[in-house]
Write a protein that binds this DNA or RNA. Sequence first.
DNA 1: ACACGCGGGACCCCCCGTTGGT
DNA 2: ACCAACGGGGGGTCCCGCGTGT
Lengths: 222, 222, 222, 222
Amino acid sequence: MQVLSAEDGGRDMAKQERALRTRERVLTAAAEVFAAQGYSRATLSAVADRIGMTKGALYGHFPSKKSLAGALIDESRGVWTSLRTEHDTPGADAGGVLEGVVMGFADRLRTDVRMRASVRLASDCPVLARAVADVLQEVEDSLAKLVRRAQHEGGFPPYSPRLVACLLMTVAYGLLHSPAGAGPVEDEEQEEEPLWRLLFTALSRSEPPGSAQADDRSVSAP
Amino acid sequence: MQVLSAEDGGRDMAKQERALRTRERVLTAAAEVFAAQGYSRATLSAVADRIGMTKGALYGHFPSKKSLAGALIDESRGVWTSLRTEHDTPGADAGGVLEGVVMGFADRLRTDVRMRASVRLASDCPVLARAVADVLQEVEDSLAKLVRRAQHEGGFPPYSPRLVACLLMTVAYGLLHSPAGAGPVEDEEQEEEPLWRLLFTALSRSEPPGSAQADDRSVSAP
Amino acid sequence: MQVLSAEDGGRDMAKQERALRTRERVLTAAAEVFAAQGYSRATLSAVADRIGMTKGALYGHFPSKKSLAGALIDESRGVWTSLRTEHDTPGADAGGVLEGVVMGFADRLRTDVRMRASVRLASDCPVLARAVADVLQEVEDSLAKLVRRAQHEGGFPPYSPRLVACLLMTVAYGLLHSPAGAGPVEDEEQEEEPLWRLLFTALSRSEPPGSAQADDRSVSAP
Amino acid sequence: MQVLSAEDGGRDMAKQERALRTRERVLTAAAEVFAAQGYSRATLSAVADRIGMTKGALYGHFPSKKSLAGALIDESRGVWTSLRTEHDTPGADAGGVLEGVVMGFADRLRTDVRMRASVRLASDCPVLARAVADVLQEVEDSLAKLVRRAQHEGGFPPYSPRLVACLLMTVAYGLLHSPAGAGPVEDEEQEEEPLWRLLFTALSRSEPPGSAQADDRSVSAP
DNA sequence: ACACGCGGGACCCCCCGTTGGT
DNA sequence: ACCAACGGGGGGTCCCGCGTGT
């Protein structure tokens, strides 16, 4: 049914190519709306308008609103694993890996709309509880394992690894749900990365900070 | 508004007593729904059903869904100030005050449904942005000031006070938006307090934690 | 049941006196709201607020919104008959009686809120169709009979009496439903009486108006 | 908006054709309900049921109840201007034009549901006050100007033109708000045209009607 | 007994997610 | 890919009765 002849195959591939491109555009637009409005307040009309389509056209690519959110969630799983394998090279010390993963995650959260949407959907969506529980547990377990490895290698305080992982996830959730305009946004576009660095620094600190005087920017802008 | 005489006053007070009790029940039920579902997914029917009333009955106490959320927000402001004045007794060291306030806040978040609802509404509600921005900024400023005082008295690392405050707020938001059932919930009801203790410990730590081996519960269950 | 004893009778009468006064205030307030808003848009809250009562208190005097409108309608019947008997004195010529009745009606429409409310309710109310049909037919028949008498006495053009009566009623309805601010309202408070006079003049005219030039105010302000 | 090619254009026109037909059906159904019930008592459900649609389907054509009424009002403006230009041919005497316009208006009021709805909405709708004030003033001014012209040409009594125009409008309003079944409705379908003829005859009469005896039908059936 | 106010049920407008005909 | 239509609530609010004190 798929391959009938050479010409048809070529046309089908062209169609699929085009369909795939459209699907990506839909996904990105949906991510923007989901990230900004959350699941329930987001409307398919807003998604369709953003890419000059109609609501009905979306149903050619995704059978429901839920499936749109699901696709975003699924994709985030891949992003996460790639993030982990990217930093967790053989021979790397766990502390560095942990830092790389966490800060890389923070960076993705800042630059990638789909990542933001996925994390927000993870806590917003009522009907995807099972889908998100998987990837959530996976991420949390990975983080906990990294923490444990870092502790064994030394240099990371003996906090409960699972608690640390949970805290990191919680901060991610919180950032996605912060009221617009809140937070210490002063620089032009550096929004939330200093916050991640502060958190990571505090969690991984093992030495006394010295007797330096307290002053603003001491961490966020050395 | 129309206290005319002693007898009438008595009757009015009785009426007001009853009405006030109902109002409180409505507020609590609304807080439960808002905390669990967020603003947009919460329905007035759910609020009414929870206390055995109808939607129309709610109209006598709160003219709109927005006003319900607004009442919760307003109340949270009072709770916060009482929390601050309670711990910020003259002569107390800032570090202790900060700890008391943060942990007290965490405890309220765990026990008081309305507090949970308020914090969640702060980041959920589209129409109350202005109302929440006030109390939010107030809370964040108070926290930052406490951090600064703690740093001046010594014993608190020289992080950016505003960043620390923002992180604390973010964690609060994140906890309210964590997917149900996530997190290291294993004990019967100790939900999120260990997480707050971990965060506070990490932020205020100035000495090396010693060479203790890493193991679960090392912080949450000393 | 009514008169038990002298004291009780006195108290009852005082009560009834007070109740009657209240009833009148309610009726007037209701007439204002009905005349301004029509039946369906009028709310009992607006009526209650206008006299400093609660909605429930109204229920003690009138069992329903419909009964309130019904009372107004019934009262208008009495007003109408008194209006007719007032001008239809024995020995009066029918033309003068007709003019007196019509212009008196116009005056009542201008000064009496309840009359305005009644006429408006006559065409607004969905559930009082039967009650209004009676008084309506009565009024129309009376007018038609007066027209017929005036025609027999001479001096009134031979229009169909029933059609003339219907036209007069229609103008009354139209005035009550004119959009606020419409019409030739230029004088301070003389609103709609010139219109009635124009209509009556045109209907009763039998002579040529002469060759006077047309100019504004020729009829409304001689 | 997106006429891309001939084929698409054909399809779009077919689509638009269908949509336009439906829009007309909706408009007619709404006019029936508005004319019969007035604005506030009219419900969108009644409109939808009348053409076998659902409430949500209406939303695709008119975003609100108000916009439905607004479309009717706007359309009536066009009907009115066409009515005026139709009779106001160059060289026609103003008296004839006035008669043609008024009687044509009366006929439209009898045959065109939308016209009835528009006139009724003009005095019923609370939110369209500004939209109706325009067309109202326009109509009234046009009528007044015609009256003035007729007076200058001779043959029309020197009543105040604006008062005459206002009276005509008032009768139109009154007819739309007459309780159902009222009036001298006896013939099969000749409802309100005799009333208009009586009014116009009385207003334009300049000679004595002769000494004919008064009898029913003398005007409506010469 | 009378008046008051809280509460109830119904309904309206709006609008969203979703499905066939073209 | 589009348009039109559907059906289901959500929020709002109105009119009305039952229990409550005087």
